[in-house]
Amino acid sequence: MTTTNYLTRKEELILLAVHKLGDSASLVRVLEVLYESTGREWTMGNVYVPLDRMTKLGYLKTRIGESTARRGGKAVRYYTLTRFGKESLSELKRIHDTMWNGITDPAPEN
């Protein structure tokens, strides 16, 4: 079964960010990672909706974490990859690697 068909590019990036963050993938941290790597401000909704969708599709699972004063005493929720999520991500990587194999960066050299 091809597992990655259903993910958009935005979702891929977010999935990758969750993976990168390991155990500390909260919405806010995902937002930060995305900002650092893409250089673009992501809105809350733009991250939450894919996270929610991927959770519902079984790529991610959630875990309730600690509550801090900074959050107004509200608990944080962490996202982690499920087994299915990990498989999909690795398949994605494989596809990407295969595609890139043997070609160079198309950006014009300066």
Binding site: S26, L27, Y48, R70, K74, V76, R77
Partner: peptide, 16 residues
């Protein structure tokens, strides 16, 4: 169902 977490997220980023 996501009310507490999400508003917490919003609060956190707002504070940051």
């Amino acid at each position: 169902s996501d009310n507490t977490f999400l508003s917490g997220d919003f609060d956190e980023v707002y504070n940051n």
